[in-house]
Design a binder for these strands. Structure first.
Lengths: 334, 334
DNA sequence: TCGGGGAATTTGAACGATCAAACTTTGTGT
DNA sequence: ACACAAAGTTTGATCGTTCAAATTCCCCGA
């Protein structure tokens, strides 16, 4: 097994120069067809492949996007992110991009990692997940000039009119509205099991239910629990014991939905429960759930980073109207 | 914001030469302490970071490992792989390695991707998952000289004595044996719900149960179902209807365990069910399950690729005794 | 036949790091 | 004080590709 061929080898074989080979690879149309064919043939024969590192060094682009993969903490919620990672990996590859994953425990550690990857020219862009209000990462990445998109809105800031950075998110209200619509088929009293007020995501999802019920002129009961199966179960058990009068329960997450299901089953009250996130657990237990459509989120992220069709990351200042993508989720009925 | 500093800039600032800076970075002990300090200070002041692409080009190593991330297909089983990806990302980073994920739908496509990444010098090694008997990937990667480790044994080949390649796997029999042990605490009649005979993994897991029961002189009933919640449910329902006499059910997977649980609940027969893989669903529903310990698998993979402590991939011919790692799973009791 | 001009191709330099070898400094023993 | 080895440092070349500028080719009209 000999050394991998270089442009030089190909050039020699095709009887042309380095640069012509390079042109065939990068800008085929400026090469005379006859020459091009000869070069292509030589490439085939030698099994030539570009050396990525050399190319990166020269053009100062890596065609790679970084994304964090937190240490696995268990629970249902991590699954959504994993699905997104799968989706973005696939979509990125269609656009000629690679995905580099890194791990970090804290925001600081993530920043350190990203700085390293960015300065070392290992990534052209990054995708942030789990952004919080006044996220320190957003500020620093802006300073560093690293193009990035976040999956999740920066709740609390008004950045529709004056966008500070690019983001893609799921329209939670639309999701629960759809869930509600479906739930109303079981009867007029649709309850909502949500998180305590204050989380942007939770409030958004609750709004969909509240609005739909208001439209119908049917204020439904609202329950609250911290995220988790057990809290959900306890909340619903308590509500049932207190004489909850509902025809269905729409939940802010699959974890809470599982808890609700367990409570409902224990009480022998066959109440339909609808979850959010459509995790494998929802599939396994066979309850309906709102699907975030990770593929569409991934598509949105890439569109913001690279434009509708390009295959290069184009650093763009966020412009009102074109800095955000809001994905409409869909209800998976079971 | 000016151009990123290079070794040259650092050298100038510290009043030394390029190479000395490089030495401080790579082999600090051959540099005189006083000089070293000056260089380190200059690096700090300028915020210098190595340009990864340039380094890769020169040393012909990328310090990157590739791993496939299949398009997400849903279901519970994919979660195990995701957990492994998380774990390996974390561990790899501790060893100074990066993880590059790629997607592929078929073995052929994966080979194409890997060849591209390997020839382009983007990865130093690869991790294969879901290897099957006479896997075409194994042969081709060997030919190409790409170092790789597989997560999962090549069932069917005798490669303990004459190892053909490196692999790490989970000792399924040990897992079900532990599950069985725990189940025997509920009573002597422990049933097993497995896949149809013929899958290496399934047979291995079943063996643990069979052996443990044989040791106890208690042949338990054995049920069979294809992977999936519904098949599992139907199998157990049928068995219960036919008068299944059991004190607990050990299952080959969490999916089947969920099915078993649903059947058991529907029949109002409080039977403990134990699953395998410890997915979030097992956690959510609160049933015991055998945990594959992805962190240990990840550790094993890196050890095979890089030796016990190194930070470089060392391509090694598989040697009997040191080519495989078998992880002992542990039962998570709930 | 020659010149003009655009298309096609080639040449030299550069990207930023490390290797190998040459060179200089330091330290030791006599 | 001197020779000699070891330690420390510098210089020139190189990895494979692409950019920028220079050169050659080719067609067409005068």
């Amino acid at each position: 097994m000999s050394k991998a061929p270089t442009v030089e080898d190909v050039a020699l074989r095709a009887g042309v120069s380095r640069q012509t080979v390079s042109n065939v690879l990068n800008t085929p149309d400026i090469v005379k067809p006859a020459t091009r064919e000869r070069v292509v043939a030589a490439i085939e024969e030698l099994g030539y492949r570009r050396h990525a590192a050399a190319r990166r060094l020269r053009i100062r682009r890596s065609s790679t996007i970084g994304i964090r993969l937190d240490p696995y903490v268990g629970g249902i919620s991590g699954v959504v992110l994993d699905r997104f990672v799968h989706a973005i990996t696939e979509r990125a590859s269609e656009r000629g991009m690679r995905m580099l994953v890194y791990s970090a425990r804290t925001a600081e550690e993530e920043l350190a990692r990203l700085a390293e990857l960015w300065d070392g020219s290992e990534i052209d862009a990054a995708i942030l997940t789990g952004t919080v209000r006044d996220d320190p990462r957003v500020v620093r990445l802006d300073e560093d000039g690293l193009p990035f998109v976040s999956f999740g809105r920066p709740w609390g800031t008004d950045d529709i009119a004056d966008p500070k950075h690019l983001w893609v998110d799921v329209d939670g209200a639309a999701g629960t509205r759809a869930a509600c619509e479906h739930a109303l088929g079981f009867g007029p009293r649709v309850a909502f099991l949500g998180w305590p007020t204050g989380s942007g995501t939770g409030d958004d999802r609750e709004r969909g239910w509240a609005e739909r019920m208001a439209d119908a002129g049917l204020p439904g009961p609202r329950l609250t629990a911290e995220e988790g199966v057990l809290p959900g179960r306890l909340a619903v058990e308590a509500a049932l014991a207190a004489g909850l009068d509902a025809d269905a329960i729409v939940c802010v997450s699959d974890s809470l939905a599982v808890g609700a299901l367990l409570a409902v089953a224990a009480a022998r009250r066959p109440l339909p429960v609808i979850g959010f996130d459509n995790t494998p657990t929802a599939e396994a237990l066979g309850f309906s759930s709102v699907e975030q459509r990770p593929e569409d989120v991934a598509g949105g992220v890439l569109r913001l980073l690279m434009g509708p069709t390009g295959d290069v990351v184009v650093p763009s200042r966020p412009l009102a109207g074109s800095a955000h993508v809001l994905i409409e989720p869909r209800l998976v009925v079971r």
